[in-house]
Design a protein around this nucleic acid. Structure first.
Lengths: 247, 247
DNA sequence: AATTGTAGTGTAAAAATAACACATAAAAAT
DNA sequence: ATTTTTATGTGTTATTTTTACACTACAATT
């Protein structure tokens, strides 16, 4: 077998060695790209930026950045999100790693996609640090650079599945919300209409919301009761009864 | 802002630039590690190797290798699997990317885990190319290096979910199999007993198996009918009726 | 002919899901 | 003061899905 000059050789001769050489030239740049979902009490949205740097300057893209040597990917994703939006303590989850050789025409880059969930209204003035950042309604987003469109599609699928099996919808809502807002959220995520009574019955049967005395008067004359997600109760149920959130 | 000597700077001054510098020193090695599931008509197993190279020489681990510049991650995973087992045309799926800074004490490595499904008996002599490779029953596997144990746990969860929602179980069985073998497989994957009649009724209601005239006589005097998965029928149903495999 | 061990089969109860419509509250307009 | 307006809030029934459960059939071996 021929060895490149800078190969580092494992100390044995068998087939393991073939796989465990590495070469400086096989090092790659690892990026993180963040799909940021937001909800404004009516529509599910996604935050995009107009790139003011090459390649693909002027086109819309996800926010992203490069992994640094002294951090792991979760930390990189958190850093990227904070640098852009000023936000921390945001739900984030690793989605998938994209590695097509020519996905970025400029240089070989592998990108680990993350998605984040934020409540648009509570956070909208916290400081979106890039002038060119904009919320787009899902489905009205412009076409994106590289494989970012594919990333978003996968993120939506993941979000749909998560929403049905975990209480992550609340990450997209303000602390206090009405049943109608919660239903709007689920309809946006799942992209289909739900039956109001069935939805409320289902939510109530889970028994993890607290109904407040307070009402939201902004939408109807009658007003709608506000609810909060009872995280402690939820976690207690999970721990004690093997309860699992299934909508 | 201070720039490292070898930084490549984006061409604008705003916050984007902070994230879009990169430095040669931020390049990393990307590994792939493969969780190989096998089934031998009775038990779900996992293929491990005893490392004969440093670090952690002599300990058990998943098979793995490094991503090369001219391939994507799927290709790297396929290559690693083929090099070890001689197998190709195997179901593989990307699982998750592991990036803890000190996960590999030897060097900074980020690893993308894949899992593969193979039928042990059809393939057992195809050539496991490493003497030190061995099948372990799930749950009897030794403790593993680095974060490989965590990878396996995640792979099992993913496999459980996939098995319930996609026809991937058949990847673990020979082309012809009995209902009992199929049930054994699902019991192994889900790690729980299933009711025989309910299982068969459910499978039959999906209407994607072909019952052969042939019987497997190796287990009982009476013999058990063999079935094959009708992939064309399955795909046609998915395409035409929006059918989805749910067990 | 009797024994042995797995294969093969159906029904009824329970639970979950889906379908469905009207009265109520409170502000705004008259 | 009365009427209008608009979204809120609420329960029952039918349908579908899931679960529980036990005996006969077969074919080889003794």
């Amino acid at each position: 077998m021929e060895l490149p000059k800078d190969a580092v050789l494992a100390d044995d001769k068998d087939i393991n060695s073939q796989l465990n050489f590495y070469q400086k030239e096989d090092q790659v740049l690892l990026a993180v790209d963040c799909i940021i979902f937001g909800f404004d009490k009516t529509n599910l949205k996604i935050l995009l930026i107009k790139r003011n740097f090459e390649p693909e300057k002027g086109k819309w893209s996800l926010i992203g950045g490069f992994l640094k040597k002294n951090e792991n990917l979760d930390q990189a994703a958190i850093r990227v999100l904070r640098t852009l939006t000023g936000l921390s303590d945001i739900y984030m989850e690793q989605l998938y790693t994209y590695s097509k050789v020519d996905r970025d025409p400029g240089q070989r880059t592998i990108s680990v996609a993350y998605f984040a969930l934020i409540d648009v209204e509570s956070h909208q003035f916290d400081g979106i640090q890039i002038d060119s950042a904009r919320w787009f309604d899902l489905g009205e987003a412009p076409s994106l650079i590289f494989d970012h469109g594919k990333m978003i599609q996968k993120a939506i699928s993941r979000l749909q599945r998560r929403a049905m099996t975990m209480p992550i919808g609340f990450e997209l809502l303000p602390e206090k919300f009405t049943m109608r807002q919660l239903q709007n959220l689920y309809e946006s995520i799942l992209d289909k209409k739900l039956d109001k009574r069935n939805f409320i019955n289902k939510i109530n049967s889970l028994d993890v919301l607290i109904k407040l005395d307070e009402k939201d008067m902004t939408v109807s004359r009658k007003g709608a009761y506000l609810y909060v997600f009872d995280k402690e109760k939820y976690e207690k149920k999970v721990a004690e009864d093997g309860f699992s959130f299934k909508l």
